[in-house]
Design a protein around this nucleic acid. Structure first.
Length: 588
RNA sequence: CGGGGAGUGGCUCAGCCUGGUAGAGCACCUGGUUCGGGACCAGGGGGUCGGAGGUUCAAAUCCUCUCUCCCCGACCA
C-alpha cells in the first residue's frame, strides 16, 4: 500500500521564481520534477511513475508494429562523419573527447546508429521491411532551453526507424506509425491534431506532426475549422483574397519617384498614399556558403520578392534552393549587387539568372502572390528613390515563381476557401519519410529478388515522452493544480482520511485503499497527520484524477468521491466504492 | 550570439539608491491545543548575501571581472 506519509512527494505552496509556463510551475509544485541546470531535470517519484505509464503505453503500441532495441547514447565521430552530419549539426551536437583524444558525441537522434546496423546486417530483400525502435534519452545542446520540460537538453524519446525495399513499402511503414501514434495519443488522453509538417533538417518528403494546442507551445498550427485542413506554419499554404492593382501613371512604364528617407514598406506606402500590398518587398540572401567550404557549390546571391504585406517563410526557401542554407546579405554585399543601399532595393536593373543552372548570375525568386500583378511599387536601387508602374514579367523576369510566403490568420483555406486560424501548439510526435538520405550516404544495400543491389528506403518517427506529460498538464490545469488522464496519472485514486489521528477514519481509509488496490487500481493513501485543508490543497495539486474523502459521513457508511476535472463530488457507500470505480470507463 | 531581468536560510521575497557586520512570511525541529479547504500558542535550529578581485577603518550594499538562472529574439526533428 502506498502511504503518503512514507513517500517523498515534495509539494510546494509557491511556484519557483524561474518558472513561467503553467506546466512547469505545476510539475515543480506537485513534486514531479526538479531542475538541475538549464534544460536538465530530475524526475522524482510522482513524475517517474507518470513517465513509466506513458512509456508502457508507447511500448505496447510500438510492439504491435516494430521491435524494441536499446542503442548507445555515446557515439563515435566516425558514424556522424559517414552521414555527413558531424559538420552539419553544429553546436546542437554535444561533443566530447575520450582519454585517447578521440572525438565522441552524445546522440541527439539515432539515424546513424540504426543505419549502421542496417548496413552491416541487412543483406536481402527477404529481411525487409524492418521497424526498429527504442525509448532512450536524447541530448541536444539547445541554444535556448525553455518552458520547463517543453524544450530541454536531455529528454526521453521514442524513436523508430523503418527500412523498406521501395516507396510503396515505406508508405505502409509510415501508415502503420501514423495509426500507432493515433492509438498512443488517444490512450494517453491527449486532445491532439495531426498536421502536415515541414520535414526540416531531417530531409525527406512527406511528414506529419502530432500536436496538442497550448498557449505554451512553440509550433504555429494553421487550421481550418470547416474542412479540417491543418498544417504547420512552415508548411501551410493559403489562397489570398483578391487585391486591386493601382492604375498606371504617366505612360505606364516604370516611373521614378522621390522618396527621401522612406525605407520601410510602411513608410513608403504611407508616403505615397498606397497600401503595403501594392509594394514589392525585396530581400537579399547568400546561399551555399557551407557547401562552398566542401567545394560542392559556390555561394550565390538569392533575391526574394514578396508582396509588401507578406513575410518570407524561410522553411519554404531552403527546399526551393535544393536544401542549401541561406543567410541574409551584408550591407557591402548588397551594395555590390544592387549598387544601392538596403531600403531601396528592387528587381529592375539587375540581370537575373533565367534558371538555376546559370550559376554566374543572381537568382530572383518571386512569390506566387506577385504573379499577374501590375503597377506595383518597388525600390529603384538608388538611394531615396522608388519605382511606380512596376509589372512583373514585363519589367523584370524572375528566375521562378514559388510559394515562399508565410500564411497569416484570416487568409483563405487552400481546400475550402474559409478563413484560416493560427494557434500555438506543442509538438508531441513527428513522422517523416526520410527516403534514401542515410541509407545512401552510409552505404546500406540489399539484394532484390533479381539479385541486384538496391538501397533500402527509410522512415523515422519520434515521440517526446516528456512532452506527452507536459501537454497533458497544459490541456488540463487551473490555478490550484492539474488533473491527468487516469491512464498516465501516477496514481488513479487518492484516498484522503480527513483526520489521520482519528483511528476509525484511518482504519476505514486503509480498508478502502486495500480494496481498491486489490481491484487493480493505483491508489495512494494520504495518511499524513495534517489538517484536512492541507490535504485537500495537495490533492488538488498533484494530478491524481479521483479523490475519495473518508470523513464525517463514515458514521453513516458513506464516502465522498471527488472528480478533480469537474470538482463534482458524490456520496458513495463504503461497500459500493469498488463497483463505483469499476463502472467508470477510464479509471483502470 | 543580440536585448532585458534576477542571484540574500529549503521556498517566496525585503534590505542595496544613502556602506556600520542580515530580516519577514512559509517550511523545518520540540511541547501543547486543534482537525472538512494551506490552524494557533510557546520555545528552537538554519544564511561567510552566486564567485573572484578591488575601494574603505568598515561591503549584501560602491567599482571591475566572472559564473549561473529566467524572459524576448536569432536558432531548432
Amino acid at each position: 500500500m502506498y502511504r503518503w506519509s512514507q513517500l517523498f512527494i515534495p509539494t510546494l505552496r509557491q511556484a519557483p521564481a524561474d518558472a513561467e509556463v503553467a506546466s512547469h510551475k505545476l510539475l515543480v509544485r506537485a513534486g514531479y520534477i526538479r531542475q538541475l541546470a538549464a534544460g536538465i531535470y530530475s524526475y522524482l517519484f510522482l513524475g517517474q511513475r507518470s513517465f513509466n505509464k506513458i512509456i508502457a503505453i508507447v511500448r505496447q503500441e510500438m510492439d504491435k508494429i516494430g521491435q524494441e532495441f536499446l542503442l548507445p547514447g555515446l557515439h563515435p565521430r566516425e558514424i556522424w562523419e559517414a552521414s555527413g552530419r558531424w559538420a552539419v549539426m553544429g553546436d546542437n551536437l554535444f561533443r566530447l573527447k575520450d582519454r585517447k583524444g578521440a572525438d565522441l558525441c552524445l546522440g541527439m537522434t539515432e539515424e546513424e546508429v540504426m543505419t549502421e546496423i542496417a548496413r552491416k546486417e541487412l543483406r536481402s530483400y527477404k529481411q525487409l521491411p524492418q521497424i526498429w525502435y527504442q525509448i532512450a534519452p536524447k541530448f541536444r545542446d539547445e541554444p535556448r532551453p525553455r518552458s520547463g520540460l517543453l524544450r530541454v537538453r536531455e529528454f526521453l524519446m521514442k524513436d523508430s526507424y523503418s527500412f523498406d525495399l521501395d516507396a510503396a513499402g515505406l508508405d505502409v511503414s509510415y501508415k502503420r506509425h501514423y495509426d500507432a501514434y493515433c492509438r498512443i495519443f488517444d490512450r494517453c488522453g491527449l486532445k491532439y491534431v495531426v498536421i502536415e509538417a515541414h520535414s526540416g533538417a531531417m530531409g525527406g518528403t512527406e511528414s506529419h506532426e502530432f500536436a496538442v494546442y497550448s498557449a505554451a507551445g512553440e509550433d504555429q498550427v494553421v487550421s481550418c475549422g470547416h474542412c479540417h485542413y491543418a498544417a504547420n506554419l512552415e508548411k501551410a499554404t493559403s489562397k489570398l483574397w483578391p487585391v486591386e492593382d493601382l492604375p498606371p501613371e504617366g505612360d505606364g512604364q516604370p516611373l521614378l519617384v522621390h522618396t527621401p528617407g522612406q525605407k520601410t514598406i510602411e513608410e513608403v506606402a504611407r508616403y505615397l498614399g498606397v497600401s503595403p500590398h501594392h509594394k514589392i518587398k525585396t530581400l537579399a540572401y547568400v546561399l551555399g556558403e557551407k557547401d562552398a567550404k566542401s567545394g560542392k557549390a559556390k555561394p550565390r546571391a538569392i533575391v526574394v520578392l514578396l508582396r509588401g504585406d507578406h513575410q518570407l517563410n524561410e522553411a519554404k526557401l531552403a527546399p526551393a534552393l535544393g536544401g542549401g542554407e541561406a543567410r541574409p546579405m551584408q550591407e557591402e554585399e548588397i551594395q555590390q549587387l544592387f549598387r544601392s543601399p538596403a531600403g531601396f532595393l528592387g528587381p529592375i536593373g539587375v540581370v537575373w539568372a533565367s534558371n538555376l543552372l546559370e550559376e554566374d548570375r543572381p537568382v530572383l525568386l518571386a512569390d506566387r502572390a506577385l504573379e499577374g500583378r501590375s503597377n506595383l511599387i518597388s525600390g529603384a536601387n538608388r538611394s531615396d528613390y522608388h519605382l511606380k508602374n512596376v509589372t512583373p514579367g514585363r519589367d523584370f523576369q524572375p528566375t521562378g515563381y514559388l510559394d515562399l510566403r508565410s500564411v497569416t490568420a484570416g487568409e483563405a483555406c487552400p481546400n475550402c476557401g474559409r478563413a484560416l486560424g493560427i494557434d500555438p501548439a506543442v509538438e508531441v510526435g513527428h513522422i517523416f519519410k526520410l527516403g534514401y538520405k542515410y541509407s545512401e550516404s552510409m552505404g546500406a544495400r540489399v539484394l532484390d529478388r533479381n539479385g541486384r543491389e538496391v538501397t533500402p528506403i527509410m522512415g523515422c518517427y519520434g515521440i517526446g515522452i516528456e512532452r506527452i506529460l507536459t501537454a497533458a498538464v497544459e490541456q488540463s490545469h487551473d490555478e490550484q493544480g492539474f488533473w491527468l488522464p487516469p491512464q498516465i496519472a501516477p496514481f488513479t485514486i487518492l484516498v484522503t482520511p480527513t483526520n489521520a489521528a482519528d483511528a476509525q477514519l484511518l482504519h476505514t481509509a486503509q480498508n478502502v485503499t486495500e480494496r481498491l488496490a486489490a481491484a487493480g487500481f493505483d491508489v495512494l493513501l494520504d495518511d499524513r497527520d495534517e489538517r484536512p485543508g492541507v490535504k485537500f490543497k495537495d490533492a488538488d495539486l498533484v494530478g491524481i484524477p479521483f479523490r475519495v474523502t473518508v470523513g464525517k459521513k463514515v458514521t453513516e457508511g458513506m464516502l465522498e468521491v471527488v472528480h478533480r476535472s469537474t470538482r463534482e463530488s458524490q456520496d458513495v457507500t463504503i461497500a459500493a466504492i469498488g463497483e463505483y470505480f469499476e463502472a467508470l470507463p477510464l479509471a483502470h
